[in-house]
Each structure stands twice: as C-alpha cells, then as structure tokens.
C-alpha cells in the first residue's frame, strides 16, 4: 500500500507538488494524469525517494524519506526513456540484478517475460525504442517487486509497441502487482488504470475512475488538420458554417470531433476543395481547452 500525506515538493520558489494526499491499495493500478509540468514525474520521483519532499510518504509501511533504499527495493521503475550504460542486454540485467539482490536465475525468466529472450547478447544501443522499454521493464521485474512505477512508459513507442507494453503491464497488474503510472493518453489510462489522480499545477484536482475522466474534465477528441496557408480562411469559414468547435493554430486548425465522427470534417473540407496536407488525432489534450472558439 502506498500512502502520501500532504506531499509537497518545492524547487526554490516553484511549488511542483502542493499538499497532495492519496492512498493506493495493493494490487491497484492508478494513473497520474495532467498536463506537462503538472507534477506527475515529480510525484513519481518522490515515491522513488530520489527527490527530497515535505509531508509523509510510505510504501508498504516503509518511510520513503528515512529509508529510501528499502522503499526502492519494493519498486520496479520504468522511466519515459531509459538510458542504459553501454553493455549487452545480459550484462545490463546482471548489473541491475546485483543492485536489486535478485537471483541470477531470474534473468532468463524476465527476458522471456518481456519477449527479449533471443536478444540477450545484443548491445543495448542496438535495440529499438520498444525493445529498450521492454528491457527497462525486465530490469524493473528482476527482484519481483510488489510495486511498479511507470513514468509515461509508452510516450516514445510506436503504436504496436505501445499496445504490447500496455498488454504486458495489464497482465502484471492482474497478477497482483500495484501499478502507478503517468500518462498523457486517455486510451492508455482507460486500458490500464482502475483509478485516475488528476494533477493540475501540482495540486490533486480530481480523483475518479478512468472512464469518467473525459466527461469530468470535459475532454474531447480533436483532429489537427494542416491546410495550405491560402486555404486557412476558407477552412475556418467552413467549420464556422457547419457549427464545429475549432481552434486555429499556426498552419493547422484543431477541430473538435465526436466519437465515430473523425471523417466528417475531413469530408467537408474535401467537398469544399480544401487541400488536406496532413492530420493527426489528439485524445483529450488539456492545452486546447481554454482557447477554443465556440
């Protein structure tokens, strides 16, 4: 069980975490949600005892401030981008196994668990981004810790690697591991989390089940559409006419869409002979909420 009471972290005048309290039960999977700078990574690093902090924080009864090393022994950590030393996969696991007091026999087991069994002799630098994250998960699992802390672990992965990673973590959670993760992705939070803690400017703004997150925060899906400069006005006029909620942004225009309605604005633009240079689907980005034009 993880207990945080009045957790506060200051960097000089900046308060990165402000009086945050939460409890995470064993076996739960809890997401930290928030915009960049909301305090997600700071909170996770406090849990790891890398940061000093004010307030109380304990993991399975171990005081993180007083016994950081013991608290970390109960945690497997996967950062957004893991920087490994220049070693082979096997050497890397062997090194971290020694630090984690894990049995060497665990190495083969975790390699198989994350499907890296055939890559043990490879240099870490020769691995793809997805494989490196799987290796980071293997390192995290070496000592079979009860708690996994994942800091936007799929942020740098392609779609397939993201799905594989999420699936693996889901299995681990179902097997009884407590998972605490940060994410920007609504679909990931829904797939992986049983509860969401929403951080805004370092404060705990909301706590809810993942499926309620979009509704509670007023999150929507947006299409970001890039059009030629000389067709931008026509695009805005079209979205205005058709009653879309939209927001011009440089050479692109954000347009709010409903579930299952991704194609509608694209079709409208096509019928109006507007050239679509590119488009991207944005899931629940907080940054566009305050600036939209209704």
């Amino acid at each position: 069980m993880i207990i945080a009471r009045n957790l506060t972290k200051r960097y000089g005048k900046l308060t990165a975490l402000d009086d945050v309290s939460f409890t995470i039960q064993a076996g739960e999977s809890v997401a930290l949600w928030g915009a960049n700078g909301a305090g997600k990574t700071t909170a996770l690093r406090c849990l790891l005892g890398i940061h000093g902090f004010e307030g109380e924080l304990s993991i399975n009864g171990v005081d993180v401030r007083k016994h950081g090393k013991a608290a970390r022994a109960a945690i497997g950590y996967v950062p957004q981008e893991t920087i490994f030393y220049d070693m082979s996969v096997l050497e890397t696991l062997d090194f971290y196994a020694h630090l984690k007091k894990a049995k060497v026999e665990r190495i083969a087991a975790v390699l198989e668990q994350v499907q890296l069994g055939g890559h043990s002799a490879k240099r870490v630098n020769a691995l793809s981004g997805g494989m490196k994250q799987r290796l980071a998960l293997a390192v995290a699992l070496l000592a079979d810790p009860p708690v996994l802390i994942l800091d936007e672990p799929t942020a740098n992965l392609d779609v397939q690697a993201q799905r594989d990673f999420v699936h693996t973590v889901q299995s681990l959670n179902q097997a009884g591991k407590t998972v605490v993760f940060s994410s920007h992705r609504l679909d990931e939070v829904i797939a992986l989390g049983s509860r969401v803690l929403v951080l805004t400017d370092g404060r705990l703004a909301l706590e809810c089940p993942p499926r309620e997150l979009a509704q509670r925060l007023g999150l929507h899906r947006w299409l970001r559409i890039w059009v030629p400069e000389d067709q931008r006005e026509a695009t805005i006029a079209l979205f205005d006419r058709e009653g879309y909620t939209y927001m011009p942004n440089g050479r692109s225009v954000y347009v709010q869409i409903s579930h299952g309605g991704k194609l509608a604005p694209l079709r409208s633009l096509e019928l109006a002979n507007v050239t679509i240079e590119d488009f991207d689907l944005i899931e629940g980005e907080l940054i566009v909420q305050d600036e939209r034009h209704d």
Partner: peptide, 14 residues
C-alpha cells in the same frame, strides 16, 4: 547529462 544517473538512483542503492 545523459539521464543514466537518475535511473541508477532509482534502484535500491544509496
């Protein structure tokens, strides 16, 4: 500078 230190310090070491 590379970020390797943060990862190392996230392990059970002082």
């Amino acid at each position: 500078e590379t970020g390797a230190l943060t990862y190392l310090l996230a392990q059970p070491v002082s």
